[in-house]
């Protein structure tokens, strides 16, 4: 799979194949920087269209136990935002279409302008900010505009239609629709909230709408792909790595899950 020059191109490619895009998340530095590059390269080789490289943060309050454990491991391995940018650079060089997902404080501390500059240089295309809403994003909007970095904000089932309109107005690249009211982590069933949220978001924007939080199986990916432009999977990948005895085993498990999900978005 070759790297797309923009998120728009990645979604256009998926659309040309009459399917949703598959977006896979893994924290940088988990379990080590080098291993996270290897695992992400595997995700790309096995069928992820876009990679969300997680920036490990000490207080991930939107994340469930699996991702909490993973970022804890990454932080203990000494992962910093510099590591994250290096991981982005390496996976992009290997052919990934990559964005970063980060809580706000590490970016603010790094320097908003500096982060946007460095991410652009590394070949990263955008940033998902789960605890930053457009109201607090003045500097971020200026910096991302200046560096051509896509700004991916979230909408949630509790967002009013007026809120959705406001959020998508500041969003670029794609809209991240949180499928359920809750933290990240696999769910055995996905309720109807995600479909309803996508339907409410659709009239407000021409951007692709991707659904995340709770999607972990090929079957769920297929369901979400029937109404969304992209399917985001995070905790399920993380869980495969946590459960693997060795990094080779983790690669095998990641390959199998990616293939299952890639088949799901194509069904």
């Amino acid at each position: 799979m070759t790297r797309h020059a923009s998120l728009a191109a990645a979604f256009a490619h998926a659309k040309s194949e009459n399917r949703a895009a598959l977006i896979g998340y893994l924290p940088a530095g988990f379990p080590t920087a080098a291993d996270s590059v290897r695992l992400i390269n595997q995700m790309v080789a096995s069928g992820c269209d876009i990679i969300e490289v997680g920036l490990p943060y000490s207080d991930p309050l939107m994340d469930g136990p699996a991702i909490q454990e993973a970022v804890d491991i990454a932080l203990h391995a000494g992962t910093t935002p510099e590591t994250v940018l290096e991981v982005v650079e390496q996976v992009v060089a290997a052919g990934a279409t990559a964005v970063v997902m980060s809580y706000w404080n590490p970016i603010e501390r790094y320097g908003v302008e500096r982060f946007a500059t460095r991410l652009e240089a590394a070949g990263g295309l955008g940033v998902i900010t789960p605890d930053l809403t457009p109201e607090e994003a003045g500097d971020w909007i200026a910096a991302t505009d200046a560096h051509g970095i896509e700004r991916i904000f979230l909408v949630a089932p509790s967002s009013t239609d007026a809120r959705i309109a406001k959020v998508v107005e500041s969003t670029s690249g794609f809209v991240y629709a949180a499928s359920t009211m809750g933290v990240t982590g696999a769910r055995t069933t996905l309720g109807s909230a995600a479909g309803e949220l996508v339907a409410r978001t659709r009239p407000a924007t021409d951007l692709p709408i991707c659904v995340g939080v709770g999607v972990s199986t090929g079957e769920q990916a297929a369901t979400v792909a029937s109404y969304a432009d992209g399917v985001i999977v995070g905790s399920a990948f993380v869980k495969r790595v946590l459960d693997a005895a060795t990094i080779d085993d983790a690669c095998i498990a990641i390959d199998a899950l990616t293939r299952e999900l890639a088949e799901g978005v194509r069904s």
């Binding site: 939107m62 706000w104 605890d131 809403t133 904000f153 979230l154 949630a156 949180a178 009211m181």
Partner: peptide, 12 residues
Amino acid sequence: GGRFVPEALTAA
């Protein structure tokens, strides 16, 4: 101050 929270909490 301000509000730095997941969008899911904005309505609440």
